[in-house]
Design a protein around this nucleic acid. Structure first.
Length: 870
RNA sequence: GGGCGCGUAGCUCAGUGGGAGAGCGCUCGCUUCACACGCGAGAGGUCGCUGGUUCGAGCCCAGCCGUGCCCACCA
C-alpha cells in the first residue's frame, strides 16, 4: 500500500497489478448461473485467436465491453462476460507451418495426426497470452469458464449444427466455382477475398474462324486460361458479330473448335466485344457456361499447375510459366493482334495474400437464404439494434443478397467434417457410421462456422445447462465493422435457427483506430502500437513521434489512462489514434488521485459518508454530482462512450476540483464534521460512477475510504433519482459566483495586479449573500470598511446582475484600470446593440418561439444592468 | 458501379436551427499548505466551396472540391 500522504503522483504501475489480483481472488467476475436472462446481463467476447496478442483493436473493444459489464454489475445485475479464444483455423495453422518451415520440415512430412498434435502443443505454449493481457487491461470477464472453440463440448455443438443443417438440406456438397487460395492450398469464402488494384497486360488474341477465312479477336488478361476455353460469346445485338453467331472458331494452340454463342452478359464496347468463355477458371464464365450447357475443361489444378487436360507441352507448368509459354507461341504464330496495359481489380486471399485462382472444386456449401430471412426480420423489427444505427443498413444489404457459403477448408487444424464416404455413399452423423470401409472427409470447417455458435455453444448448448438458462440470450455484442458479415450476421442466423432467439439485442460497432497517417494500425506496416507498451511504457513507433522529436518511449500511462483515452477517442466510424487522449486520461487519474488525497487526508478516520449539505456549495455539488451521474449512465446505455469519458473528465476537473474543493478548503481545515461526511459521500459516488471507465484507480481509492467495505467493483450504486436532487437555486447561485470570480480574476490579470495582493472592493449587485465570502477569497478582495464607503472607485467590474467596484490602493495602476473599464463598456454596448437589433426585428419577434424571444429579452435586461453598474 | 463516413483553432476532435467549444500545443502571471504530469489568465477559427430554405444556418437541402472505408462477376 502506498503511503497516501507522500504519494503526490498516482503510480498506476504500482497499483494496477495489485488490484487485478484482488479482483481475481474475490471471485466477483464469476456469477452463479441463477436468475433469468432478462434480469442478468451477459456479453460474449469476440474470441481472439488463441495464439494472438493484444492489439489496439482488442484494447478498445474490451475497454468498451468492460465499461458496459462493470456499469451493469454496479447497477446490481448479475453479470457474465463470456471469455475465450478461437482456434482460428487458417491463421493458427499458418503460424505453426511457418515454424515448421524454420525447422526444415513441413506438415506434409509430419502427417496429419502429428501435425495436429503439434498445433495443440503450440497452443499450450503460446496460447493464453492474450487472456493474461485482458486481465492486465482490467477486463472483468469470467475467467473461470474460459472457452475454446475446439473444446470437446464445443465440438459437439458444431457437429450437431452441421448434421442438423445437412438433414434440412441446407448443407450440401457441390462441384462449383470457388475462390482457391494457392497460398493456403484451400478454398476460401467470398468474405475472405479482397480486391486489389493490379496492372495487367490485356492481350488481344485472334481465334481463326473454322470457315478458314478471317478470325475473331478476343481480349484477355489471362491468356493461359485459353487452354480451357469452351466457347466465344458476343452480344446478341452486336452488328459486327451477328452473322458469326452459331459459327465456330479454332482455339489456337489446342485446335479445339469453339462455338460462337450470344449472351447479353457481353459488353460490346469492351475490348473487341468478343469474349472467350472459360467456365472452369472465371466466375462469370462459369455462370455463362452453366447457362449454355458448355463443357468445363479445367487446365489449372489445385496445386496451381497446368493439368493433363491441357496440351502435353504445358502440363506441369505453373500458371505464370504457362502464361509466358502461351504468349510466346501465340506471338510466334502471329496471333496476338496487340496488347495494352490494363488496370483493374483482382481477387487476393485475405489469408495468404496470394492471388486467388478461381476454379471448379468439389466442396461443401451452405445455402443461406432460408436462414437469412428471420435474421433480416430480427433487425428490421428492432429486436436486434445496431449502434450506430446506420450499420444496420450494411447488414441488411448483405443479408438480402446473401449467397451460398463455402464451408469446407482443405486444412488440418479445425473441426473435421462429420462426413464419411464409401463408394458412392455419403454418411453424415455425429458418430462414425457402422460398418467397414468408410473414409472420413479430410476437410475441416471454416473457422467462422464454429464462431457463429459462440454465444450459445460457450454456455453448454446443446445441453440445457443452467448457464444457458441464466445468460442466453446475451445483451450486447461489441465488435468491429470488418466482421459484421463474417461473424455477426452468422451468429444471428445460427442463434435463431438453433435456439429460437437472437443471440444479443444490441450490436455496438466500434470505430476503427487508425495511425496518424490515416492508414490502418498494423504491426507489419509499422503503424501499430502494442497497448501494453502504452500501459507499462515501451517503445513509441516512429510514425507516432510528436513534434518532430525522436520517438523515444511511451511513459507508463497505465491501463486506466489507456482505457479512458480509447473511450474518449470512440466517436465516429474512423478515428486517428491520439496519444494526447491517453495523456489526458493520465491527467485525469492524477487529478482524481490528488483530490482524493485532499479529502481522505483531511477528513480524519472517524468520518463516515453522508449526503448532508449545510451550505449553498454543498447543495450545488450534490446537484451537479447527480446530474453527472445521470448523464454518464445515459451515455453508457446509449453506447456513447466518448461523451461518457469526456463528461466524467469535465465533472471531476471543472466542477469537483476547480470549484467545489476550492470552495470548501477553509471548512475542511476547520475540521467541520458535516463537511467531512459530505466529502466522503461525494468522493465515493464520484469514484463509483467513474469505476466502469477507470476501474483500477477508483478501486484503489475506495480501499482508503473510511467505512467502505468490500470492493468498489461489487458495490451496487443507488439508482439515479431522475432529477429530484437537482437544486436549481443552488446551481444558479454558485454559477453566478463562478462567473463573478472569473470576471474579477481576468480584471486582476489584465490590470497587472500582483498575484498575491488583496484589493479593496465594494459589491454593487444583489443576490450574492451566500457566496460573497467565497468570491472575496478566490478573487483576493477585501470589502471596504465604513471609512472607505465614500471613496471613488478606480475600476468597476461587471459581474452577473451588477458590478464590483475596486477602491484605490497602492496595488493599482489607475490608467490600466480605466482602460479596462472602457473595454468592458464597449463590449457590453456591442452585445446590447446586437440584442436590441434582434428584438427590433419584427420577423424574429413574430416567428421565433416565445421562449427564445423571452430569453433574448432577459439577456438584454441583464446586460443593461451590468452596463449601468459600470 | 453502389453504399457509408469525414472536411470546425497549429494538432486530435466535440458541437443536429437562436450569442463558435474541449484536450494538447502556444503566450503571460503564480514555488497559493491535494496535485508544477499543478493553479490563474489569455491569444488563436472566411466552421472545405457555391447556391438554396428560414426571422435566424457550423447544424437542414442541392451541387461542387478534397479525403477515408465497405460492398460489387465486367474480360
Amino acid at each position: 500500500m502506498p503511503d497516501l500522504e507522500n504519494t503526490k503522483r498516482y503510480d498506476p504501475s504500482e497499483v494496477e497489478p495489485r488490484i487485478v489480483e484482488k479482483w481475481l481472488q474475490s471471485g466477483l467476475f464469476h456469477p452463479e448461473p441463477e436468475g433469468t436472462p432478462e434480469e442478468n446481463y451477459s456479453v460474449a467476447i469476440p474470441p481472439p485467436n488463441v495464439t494472438g496478442v493484444l492489439h489496439m483493436g482488442h484494447a478498445l473493444n474490451n475497454s468498451i465491453q468492460d465499461c458496459l459489464v462493470r456499469y451493469q454489475r454496479m447497477r446490481g445485475r448479475r453479470t457474465k462476460w463470456i471469455v475465450g479464444t478461437d482456434h482460428a483455423g487458417i491463421a493458427t495453422q499458418t503460424q505453426v507451418e511457418r515454424a515448421l518451415a524454420q525447422e526444415g520440415t513441413s506438415r506434409r512430412d509430419l502427417g496429419r495426426e502429428t501435425f495436429v498434435e503439434r498445433v495443440w502443443k503450440w497452443r499450450s505454449q503460446y496460447g493464453g497470452t492474450i487472456i493474461e493481457q485482458l486481465k492486465r487491461l482490467g477486463a472483468s470477464a469470467d475467467y473461470d469458464t474460459e472457452r475454446f472453440t475446439l473444446d470437446d463440448d464445443y465440438a459437439q455443438a458444431v457437429l450437431k449444427v452441421f448434421v442438423s443443417l445437412y438433414e434440412k438440406g441446407y448443407i450440401y456438397r457441390d462441384r462449383y466455382m470457388v475462390n482457391w487460395d494457392p497460398g493456403t492450398g484451400s478454398a476460401i469464402s467470398d468474405l475472405e477475398v479482397e480486391q486489389r488494384e493490379v496492372r495487367d497486360t490485356l492481350y488481344y488474341i485472334d481465334y481463326p474462324l473454322a470457315t478458314g477465312s478471317g478470325a475473331i479477336t478476343v481480349a484477355t488478361v489471362r491468356p493461359e486460361t485459353m487452354l480451357a476455353d469452351s466457347a466465344i460469346a458476343v452480344h446478341p445485338d452486336d452488328e459486327r458479330y451477328r452473322r458469326l453467331i452459331g459459327e465456330k472458331a479454332i482455339l489456337p494452340l489446342v485446335g479445339r473448335k469453339l462455338k460462337i454463342i450470344a449472351d447479353e452478359y457481353v459488353r460490346p464496347e469492351f475490348g473487341t466485344g468478343a469474349l472467350k468463355i472459360t467456365p472452369a477458371h472465371d466466375p462469370n464464365d462459369f455462370e455463362i457456361g452453366r447457362k449454355h450447357g458448355l463443357p468445363q475443361p479445367s487446365v489449372i489444378g489445385e496445386d496451381g499447375r497446368i493439368t493433363a487436360e491441357a496440351p502435353e507441352r504445358f502440363q506441369g507448368m505453373t500458371a505464370a510459366d504457362a502464361q509466358r509459354a502461351v504468349v510466346a507461341e501465340l506471338s510466334q504464330q502471329g496471333l496476338i493482334a496487340r496488347t495494352e496495359t490494363y488496370g483493374h481489380t483482382v481477387p487476393f486471399s485475405h489469408r495468404s495474400g496470394q492471388r486467388i485462382e478461381p476454379l471448379i472444386s468439389l466442396q461443401w456449401f451452405m445455402a443461406m437464404d432460408e436462414l437469412a430471412k428471420p435474421a433480416i426480420e430480427a433487425v428490421t423489427s428492432g429486436r436486434v439494434r445496431f449502434h450506430p444505427a446506420n450499420q444496420a443498413k450494411v447488414y441488411l444489404d448483405w443479408m438480402e443478397n446473401i449467397r451460398p457459403w463455402c464451408i469446407s477448408r482443405q486444412l488440418w487444424w479445425g473441426h473435421r467434417l462429420p462426413v464419411w464416404y464409401r463408394d458412392l455413399d455419403t454418411y453424415v452423423g455425429m458418430e462414425p457410421p457402422p460398418g467397414e470401409g468408410w473414409e472420413r472427409d479430410p476437410d475441416v470447417l471454416d473457422t467462422w462456422f464454429s464462431s457463429a455458435l459462440w454465444p450459445f455453444a460457450t454456455l453448454g448448448w446443446p445441453r440445457e445447462t443452467p448457464e444457458l438458462r441464466a445468460f442466453y440470450p446475451t445483451d450486447a455484442l461489441v465488435t468491429a465493422r470488418d466482421i459484421i458479415f463474417l461473424w455477426v450476421a452468422r451468429m444471428i442466423m445460427m442463434g435463431l435457427e438453433f435456439t429460437g432467439s437472437e443471440p444479443f439485442s444490441d450490436v455496438y460497432i466500434t470505430p476503427i483506430i487508425q495511425a496518424p497517417d490515416g492508414r490502418r494500425m498494423s504491426k507489419s506496416l509499422g503503424t501499430g502500437i502494442d497497448p501494453l507498451d502504452l500501459i507499462n511504457g515501451g517503445p513509441r513507433p516512429p510514425v507516432f513521434a510528436r513534434g518532430g522529436q525522436p520517438p523515444g518511449d511511451f511513459p507508463a500511462y497505465g491501463a486506466d489512462a489507456v482505457r479512458w483515452g480509447l473511450l474518449a477517442m470512440s466517436s465516429g466510424q474512423d478515428v486517428s489514434f491520439s496519444e494526447d487522449k491517453v495523456a489526458q486520461g493520465q491527467q485525469l487519474t492524477n487529478k482524481l488521485w490528488n483530490a482524493s488525497r485532499l479529502i481522505l487526508l483531511g477528513v480524519g478516520p472517524d468520518a463516515r459518508a453522508a449526503a448532508t449539505p449545510t451550505t449553498v456549495e454543498d447543495r450545488w455539488i450534490l446537484s451537479r454530482l447527480e446530474r453527472a451521474r445521470t448523464e454518464l449512465s445515459a451515455r453508457i446505455e446509449r453506447f456513447d462512450f466518448s461523451h461518457a469519458a469526456l463528461g466524467l473528465y469535465d465533472f471531476i476537473y471543472g466542477e469537483l476540483c476547480d470549484w467545489y474543493l476550492e470552495l470548501v478548503k477553509p471548512r475542511l481545515r476547520a475540521g467541520e464534521p458535516e463537511l467531512s461526511s459530505l466529502l466522503l459521500h461525494v468522493l465515493t459516488e464520484t469514484i463509483a460512477m467513474a469505476h466502469p471507465l477507470i476501474p483500477f484507480e477508483t478501486e484503489e481509492i475506495y480501499s482508503y475510504v473510511p467505512g467502505a467495505e468490500g470492493l468498489l467493483a461489487a458495490r451496487v450504486r443507488p439508482p439515479e433519482d431522475g432529477g429530484a436532487v437537482a437544486d436549481a437555486a443552488a446551481e444558479e447561485a454558485v454559477q453566478r459566483a463562478i462567473a463573478a470570480v472569473q470576471a474579477l480574476r481576468r480584471w486582476r490579470d489584465q490590470a497587472g495586479v500582483r498575484a498575491g495582493a488583496t484589493v479593496t472592493a465594494r459589491l454593487e449587485a444583489p443576490g450574492y449573500d451566500e457566496t460573497l465570502d467565497h468570491i472575496l477569497r478566490l478573487a483576493r478582495l477585501s470589502l471596504a470598511d465604513a471609512n472607505g464607503d465614500g471613496a471613488e472607485p478606480v475600476a468597476t467590474i461587471a459581474i452577473p446582475d451588477g458590478a464590483v467596484q475596486i477602491l484605490p490602493s497602492a496595488e493599482l495602476d489607475l490608467d490600466d484600470a480605466q482602460t479596462r473599464i472602457d473595454e468592458q463598456r464597449a463590449k457590453l454596448a456591442s452585445e446590447i446593440d446586437r440584442a436590441e437589433r434582434k428584438l427590433a426585428n419584427e420577423q424574429f419577434v413574430a416567428r421565433a418561439p416565445a421562449a427564445v424571444v423571452q430569453a433574448e429579452r432577459d439577456k438584454l435586461d441583464r446586460l443593461q444592468a451590468e452596463l449601468k453598474a459600470l
